[in-house]
């Protein structure tokens, strides 16, 4: 028997799974706030960067490129390329979001990052409108508030602590992926294949950052389809 879970329960689940993201985002956002200040960007514009762009890697890259005097059109293009990987991620989520009313999709889409995507993908049984919205909102708040705090008092966090907190996001990726490896041999091989494919793409130096990630995702996922086509039929959809 399926028990209808209350909104309250879903919200609580959202908060619990958001915790690692909140902890990881805050110091990185602080670092962004501090660096933006050092690039002499106003407090308002720095906050707007985090509120409207909400993409860590792109925002740091933008600071670099602003400092290097790159034109705004080129910065926007580079941002687009770097975030193209989210096309693949949200395409993958679209299949899982059947139960979510369409009117919420524009709002939910705004909050999809590498981190929220990962947490949602590995908690498919919990997917509901309130679960996803709570997760996205808390992650977003941590990013925006962290940026503002960093702009104002960024100097107070010692660098080693900042670095280890940002390693926390990678620790989270690993903590999400490893238990899945346990469940299926195919996933284990596919993870190894993906890593090898990316290493080849990265060191080939043929593609700029952004393209190498999206190509890596496409190639290794396609290899998964080719290699595991028979075993996938056993898995009930």
């Amino acid at each position: 028997m399926i028990v209808e879970k209350s909104i309250h329960y879903k919200v609580k689940q959202g908060i619990v799974v958001a915790l690692p993201i909140i902890i990881g985002y805050f110091p990185i956002a602080m670092a962004f706030g501090l660096m933006a200040k050092n690039t002499s960007i106003s407090f308002l514009d720095t906050s707007l960067f985090s509120m409207m762009v909400f993409a860590g890697a792109s925002q740091f890259m933008a600071l670099d490129l602003i400092g290097a005097g790159v034109t705004w059109a080129n910065i926007i293009l580079a941002t687009f390329l770097l975030n193209l990987r989210h096309l693949m991620m949200t395409a993958s989520l679209a299949v899982e979001f059947k139960s979510i009313p369409k009117k919420f999709l524009p709002l939910i889409g705004f909050g999809i990052t590498d981190e929220t995507f990962s947490v949602i993908s590995f908690n498919k049984d919990k997917i509901s409108t309130s679960f996803v919205l709570v997760l996205n909102f808390l992650s977003y708040s941590s990013w925006v508030i962290g940026t503002m705090v960093g702009y104002i008092v960024g100097e107070i966090i010692p660098a080693p602590l900042q670095t280890s907190l940002s390693i926390g996001l990678y620790a989270m990726f690993a903590a999400l992926l490893f238990p899945e490896i346990n469940k299926s041999k195919n996933i284990f091989f596919l993870s190894i294949i993906s890593a090898i494919v990316y290493i080849i793409l990265f060191y080939s130096n043929l593609f700029t950052s952004g393209w190498d990630i999206i190509l890596g995702i496409i190639i290794s996922s396609a290899l998964g389809v080719v290699f595991f086509i028979n075993s996938s039929k056993e898995r009930e959809k």
């Binding site: 990987r85 693949m88 991620m89 395409a91 993958s92 679209a94 299949v95 590498d114 995507f117 990962s118 993908s121 590995f122 990678y170 990726f173 999400l176 992926l177 899945e180 996933i187 596919l190 993870s191 190894i192 294949i193 993906s194 890593a195 494919v197 990316y198 990630i213 890596g216 995702i217 290794s220 996922s221 396609a222 998964g224 389809v225 595991f228 086509i229 996938s232």
Partner: peptide, 14 residues
């Protein structure tokens, strides 16, 4: 099937 693999491949890559 391809979309199903994306979380695993993208996490490994990240």
């Amino acid at each position: 099937e391809f979309l199903y693999y994306i979380p695993y491949t993208s996490l490994s890559i990240l």
